[in-house]
Design a protein around this nucleic acid. Sequence first.
DNA 1: CCGAAGTTTGAAACCGATTGCAGAACACTG
DNA 2: CAGTGTTCTGCAATCGGTTTCAAACTTCGG
Lengths: 329, 329
Amino acid sequence: MRTTIREVAREAGVSPSTVSRALSMPGLVNSVTRERVLRAAQRLGYEPNRAARGLITGKTGNLGLIVPDLANPFFPSLVKGVQARAREADYAVFLADSDEDPAAESDLVRVLAKQVDGLILCSPRGREEDILTLAATTTLVMVNRRFGRVPSVVFDNSDGIGQAVAHLAALGHHRVAWVGGPRTSWSNRDRIRALRSATDAAGMDLYVAGHFPPQFEGGVAAADLIVASGVTSVIAYNDVMALGLLGRLRDRGLRVPQDLSVIGIDDIQMSSMSSPTLTTVSLTKEQAGRAAVDLLLSLLERPDGVRKPRRELPTQLLVRGSTGVAPTD
Amino acid sequence: MRTTIREVAREAGVSPSTVSRALSMPGLVNSVTRERVLRAAQRLGYEPNRAARGLITGKTGNLGLIVPDLANPFFPSLVKGVQARAREADYAVFLADSDEDPAAESDLVRVLAKQVDGLILCSPRGREEDILTLAATTTLVMVNRRFGRVPSVVFDNSDGIGQAVAHLAALGHHRVAWVGGPRTSWSNRDRIRALRSATDAAGMDLYVAGHFPPQFEGGVAAADLIVASGVTSVIAYNDVMALGLLGRLRDRGLRVPQDLSVIGIDDIQMSSMSSPTLTTVSLTKEQAGRAAVDLLLSLLERPDGVRKPRRELPTQLLVRGSTGVAPTD
DNA sequence: CCGAAGTTTGAAACCGATTGCAGAACACTG
DNA sequence: CAGTGTTCTGCAATCGGTTTCAAACTTCGG
């Protein structure tokens, strides 16, 4: 049986109220009494019961995190960041994986929302109105998506993709292809917009290969289109797809980067392990997790007066082995 | 403000006690009353407050899951399984990542243990006595490790590795190397034991290349030892290491599987995407997550009388592109 | 038709904390 | 020394459920 506040009170010779105050509003209790209480609590190994506290304060001390697919290597890093930051702030994290299923997602959200103080939601494809409804009743932060006044943490795709295009231009490339992710994904739209303006500015030709599932197979599927299009360089929606691309290109006997330069986005672990290693726009995924928690916590503290309910995280091109000078042909 | 049991009671014209009973012990209340209560609850969208319920029942309805490193592709699958099964049983899951740090781990455990009904622990390297102490005060299930009477879910390494050795033997290999994982990891010890008895039985020579970190770099580091040892085949502690091995072998100009056959263990996604694709001992990771939850829930129901507090999951060799007939030389 | 047994229901206590309110103790002012 | 503030502490109510206990009402056998 766990020790209760009453036992601590008895041990310290004070009332439970005093114990409660000594622990959570130390200023309100005489310093010698406080000392006595703290020692008693220490001696008995007392830790307040969160459920009981939550019952009266209305706070649970928990955060919820919903991701579409943990198997996608982007998310574990994010989760780690959320986890770590939440722990520092003494919050515990409920994790839910919606398996890319919007229906499951809204169920999860509904169940989870009741048990947490706030939610972090990665829902690249959920309907905007659903999210708005949710945001009206729950404190939430979106990751990797932005619309309306919903607080969010996103990456500065523009900057990273700008760097990538500049890198390709510097290597003498004039034609670049885009291997797109899911049509409905916010970040896919954001990235292609960024890419368009970068290639326009650099005077490069852009070939858009359309939309593919954001998995290895998606990259494989896109490869032949890319080759046929006659570009000398390609940027993929994410690293996993870029790796699929590399695999298929190798199978077809094309050399990367001699024949074709390839750039991914994300900087997942595997991208430094492929051969050639993958040049990629690195996203600070753990940072994003931490930032989302920070934002959420400040929203919980003062629901209205948060200066910047939208955070944008830096991105950085990492040049590795999959990009090289354009073929002279 | 959420609707409380009292509002439902008023709406249905009964007392709160009756509402409580109608919902959680339906047999104890008259069927027409029950109907009325259920309809009222429905109408008001009532959902019991878990904290309040937990306060009196002593149950939280939550499970805790502690993994050493989410970035290791083995774990996301496990987490998904745990998640999915827990949701079916109407439990929520607290996830904690200990970052491979045993000290952090015991902190996490202590914090988490108070907020959950039971814990699932993946702690390949934690001290046995710590885990035993913990098991004495908390209902817990270990995954991928087994000792004492602590309930556990493990894989049948023996079978899978037996299949791998038989496969190699059938291809004409007589010498096989083992690329070991962390010295202190339980599954590493279990696997090498299984491998020893399989190679002995098959009359094959076994070269043990020692211990390496269970990451890509570990496989890279082991590669040259393997080559120098003159074996024709190699089994790695896990897929990530096997991929590292493949990478380094390619860099050195060796052909897989013509010069050397490589087998991994885990069947992570990436292993079907490498080139060559990786022959591997497939572990049913999601199954393991589900099994751990099942075991945990049955332990919670009847703390003593669980027939089999240790579950062993099947393993299956998947033959892909990285194994072939032994070089004739 | 009465008493015993069985059903249903509600009142009230309780889980373990927090907090509004009021009284006690003490210091300070005039 | 009375009067007025401060500071500190305890009582009791409260959060939203569950559960014990007993009362009220049925049902049934004799």
